[in-house]
Design a protein around this nucleic acid. Sequence first.
DNA 1: TCCATACTTGATCAATTGGTCAGGTTCCCG
DNA 2: CGGGAACCTGACCAATTGATCAAGTATGGA
Lengths: 212, 212
Amino acid sequence: MNTPMITVPQTQRPVRERILEAAEAVFAESGYEGATVTDIAARAGLPKSNLHYYFGTKEALYEAVLFNTLSMWDDAFQVLRAERDPAEALAECIRLKMDLSRKRPNANKVMTGEMLQGAPRLNTFLNTTLRDQVAQSMAVLNHWIELGKMDAVSPMHVLLSIWAMTQQYADYNPPIKALLEKEELEERDYDAATDAIVQLVLRGCGVPQATA
Amino acid sequence: MNTPMITVPQTQRPVRERILEAAEAVFAESGYEGATVTDIAARAGLPKSNLHYYFGTKEALYEAVLFNTLSMWDDAFQVLRAERDPAEALAECIRLKMDLSRKRPNANKVMTGEMLQGAPRLNTFLNTTLRDQVAQSMAVLNHWIELGKMDAVSPMHVLLSIWAMTQQYADYNPPIKALLEKEELEERDYDAATDAIVQLVLRGCGVPQATA
DNA sequence: TCCATACTTGATCAATTGGTCAGGTTCCCG
DNA sequence: CGGGAACCTGACCAATTGATCAAGTATGGA
C-alpha cells in the first residue's frame, strides 16, 4: 500500500544504473584496461555474469559510461549565448563546469583517462559534434569582441582555459588537497576556486565585472 | 601506430634508458595497471626478463618513471623569484611548463594517470616537497602583490591555473587536435597557446605587460 | 689464462583475466 | 493455471598476466 519512498535502498535501484555507477567509479580509478569486470561487479554487489547480461562486453560497458558522460560537458558551454552579458554568461559557464568536477568527479576522470589513451573511441565525436559546439561558443565570443564587450582575445584559447582550470579540480584532486592541507575538499573550496577562475578569466579578457 | 625509426642505433643506447623511455610511453597510454611488462619490453626491443633484471618488479619500474619525472614540474615554477619582474617571470614560467607538455607529453601523462588513481605513490611527496615548493612560489606572488606590481589575486589559484592550462596540452591532445583540425600540433600551435595563456594570466592578475 | 661479476634470455608457473553457457528463477499476460 | 520472455547466476574456459629460474654469454681485472 504505502511504499516508504524515503531513501531507496541500493538493492532496489535499477540494476543498469547500479552497474553504470560502479563502472564509472572503477574505470575512473583504474582506467579502461586496469579496471576488471570482477571489480565492477563487486562494487555493484552483483555477480559478474549479470554485467555481461546487460552490457555484453567490458568494452560496451565502458563506452556506455563514456557516452553517458559526453553530454554533460556540453551543457556548461551552452550557456554562452550572444545576447547575454559576457560577464554573467562566462561566470555561469565556469560555475557549471566546476559543479561537474565536484559532483561527478568519476565521470570526468573517465573522460580524462580516455584522452590520455588518445581518445580512440571518441574520434568521430571530437571531429563532429564537439567541433561544432565549440565553433558555436567561439562565434559567441567573437560577437562580444566585435561589440567591444571583450578584448580581442583568442576565443578558442579562452574556452580551452576554462575547460582546463575546471577539469583540474576533478583530475588533480590529490595535489590540491595536499596544498589546502585537507582530507577532502569542501564546497567552499570549490566556490573559492570558481571565484578565482571567474576573476582571472573576466579580467584576462577585459570583461567589465558586474558590480557587486 | 608509429613505426620506430629503423636506422637509429637504438641498440647502442644504455639499456636502462631504453627501458625507462619505453615504460614512460606505455604507462602514459595504458596507465599503471593497463600497461604490461611484455608491451614495454617489446617497445624497448628487449626480452621481458631483461626488464625484471634491471628493475625487479613492474611497480618498481613504474615508480622509477614517476620519480624520474617529478623534478621536471618543479623547475618551471622555480623561475618565480621575488626580485624579478612579474610579467617576465610569469611568462617564462608558463613557457617552461608548456615546453614540458610539448617535449615530454608521456611523462606528463603518466603523472596525470597517477593523479586519477588518487596518487597513492606520491602522498608523501605531495605533502612535503610539493607543498614547500608551492608555498615558496606563493610567497613570491604575495610579495609582488604587496609591492603593488600585481592585483590582490589568490596566489595558489593562479599557480594552479597555470598548471592546469599548460598540462592540458599534454593530457588533452586529442580534442585540441580536433579543434585545430590537425593531425599533429606544431610548434607554432604551442607558441600561440603559450601567448594566449600568458596574456590571460598577466591581464587577469593586473600585471602590466612589457611593451612589445 | 682464469674466474668472478655483470648481464642476457628462453622456458615455465601460478594467478587472474574477460567471456561463455547451461540451468535456474521471477514475472507477466492470456 | 500455463508458458514464454526477461532476468539471474555458479561453474567453467582459453588466454594473458607478472614473475622466477636455470642456463647461458660477455667482460675485465689479476
